[in-house]
């Protein structure tokens, strides 16, 4: 008797699970298919030569790449220090680093303006010397870094924390000082985690909208990134908007595929 009901339960669970997964996939795929259905390959290729589309694409890729590189450069040591060393105020530092994660992007943009705009705390100082920060391409990069930094640092810190400390100890016992140990032993072992964090940061930077439009403004070629261009053109020329959206979707797929391909060959400790 019990065996009979066990079997039925497994069947229900399997069907239920399958339904859930199907629903989830439909939910994710339908908008993307909807996007693809609204354009044709000819329209798409024609749009690519539209300056609005092209400018946004190039600007987005360059700024997001630059932001990610800076984030890796600054974030890796910070994550390392926070993972390995205890110092007074460490928890506070961690909380502050996480702040941009919960801050609504528009609020972040306004806050950046208050700090770096020409009337701002720091921006005002630079403006005296003729240096404008807000409403420039630099502002785009700053906004992207501000919102994406926590993604990388959290992942990097988690990867460092998960790393067995005896590797570093063994390296030190063999005569390896801090920096060589970091590059020859630690980095190779956390590589996949760091890359995953960088990918997330890159994706977040690429999709950043609220803070960018507030702090960097909306100007083609200088600050109009792909999300901004999609929003602006959607209100006039739907074709350009759809083309940019399709491009962003394609980039996302490529990025995910690259990450999976890289991670496949990595260490399983």
């Amino acid at each position: 008797m019990r065996g009979y009901f066990q079997g039925r339960k497994n069947l229900y669970l399997t069907i239920g699970g399958g339904l859930l997964i199907t629903l989830l996939l439909v939910f994710i795929i339908t908008p993307i298919i909807g996007l693809l259905f609204r354009t044709t390959p000819e329209q798409f290729l024609a749009s690519l030569s539209d300056p609005v589309v092209w400018n946004a694409l190039v600007l987005s890729l360059i700024t997001a790449s630059l932001s990610t590189l800076i984030i890796i450069g600054v974030g890796t040591p910070v994550a390392w220090i926070n993972a390995r060393h205890r110092y007074p105020g460490r928890e506070l530092v961690d909380t502050l680093i996480d702040l941009p994660l919960v801050l609504p992007p528009t609020v972040a943009g306004l806050a950046l303006l208050m700090a770096f705009g020409r009337m701002g705390l720091i921006g005002g100082f630079f403006y005296e010397f003729g240096i404008s920060i807000a409403f420039t391409t630099l502002a785009v990069v700053i906004a992207q870094i501000f919102v994406s930094l926590p993604f990388y640092i959290r992942q990097a810190r988690a990867s460092f924390e998960q790393l067995d400390t005896t590797y570093e100890l063994a390296a030190r016992s063999l005569g390896s000082t801090s920096l060589p140990t970091f590059f020859t032993v630690i980095l190779p072992l956390v590589k996949s985690g760091l890359i995953a964090g960088a990918i997330m940061s890159f994706a977040r930077a690429l999709g950043e909208f609220g803070a960018t439009i507030m702090f960097a403004g909306n100007f083609q070629g200088r600050t109009q990134t792909m999300p901004l261009a999609i929003y602006t053109t959607m209100q006039g020329d739907l074709n350009a908007s759809i083309t940019l959206s399709v491009i962003l979707v394609l980039i996302s797929f490529v990025v995910i595929a690259l990450v999976k391909y890289r991670l496949r060959g990595d260490v399983r400790c």
Binding site: D164, T166, A170, R172, S173, S176, T177, V185, L189
Partner: peptide, 20 residues
């Protein structure tokens, strides 16, 4: 003297072999 400069050979309980 820091560990790196002590010229010691240490075999750890969990070996700590570099997996990569």
């Amino acid at each position: 003297v820091p560990a790196e400069a002590r010229d010691i050979g240490f075999v750890f309980q969990n070996y700590a072999i570099f997996p990569h």
